[in-house]
Amino acid sequence: MDPQESFRAYVDARLQVLSRVAYLLTGDWHLAEDLVQVTLTRVARHWDRVVDQGDPDPYVRKVLHSQHVSLWRRRWRHVELRDPLPETAAPDGLAGTEQSMVVRQALARLAPRQRAVLVLRYFEDLTETQAAQALGCSVSTVKSQTRDALARLREHAPELADLVGAAPSGAPQGRGGAR
């Protein structure tokens, strides 16, 4: 298939999922749009090589997460600590239960890497190895970041305790949030 056609077919098939992942990562609809746009542009740059390697998903995922960090860094670079926080936007007509809102808010309080491991592991159902490949880190880092992310959720969103489970006995509360 022509590279351009295969790229468009891929985008048609995966745009919805990518959009949801991007929204979970950024917590902001406009940022999610930017993130998907930048990610697909970067992927298009090297599409021939990407399709030659088989499944494009691992590469696209890798680009998405690295671009997420770049966008996040750009967004916060010029923000003074005393400034009001930037407003966040949500897609039109986004419905959801109160729990959904709490989940999104809780995710927004995590460090990008912690948010990323939760999305990769629990939304995209990837193994720890696959998550490590997507983030360009070791499996042990994925494990520790997952543990820290869950601990932080327990600390800052106790109402989600039934989702993330109780803290392991002896483990300090809020370990990840201290950094």
């Binding site: 959009s19 999610a32 749009e33 746009q37 697909l40």
Partner: peptide
């Protein structure tokens, strides 16, 4: 349960609108 909660949280999220054709931009 966490998996379900994450999926529920973005259940109504539509596909984003791409402001420019990523293929042309990328090339």
């Amino acid at each position: 349960r966490l998996r379900d909660a994450l999926h529920d949280a973005v259940a109504g999220v539509p596909a984003v609108r791409l402001s420019e054709d990523p293929w042309r931009q990328g090339r």
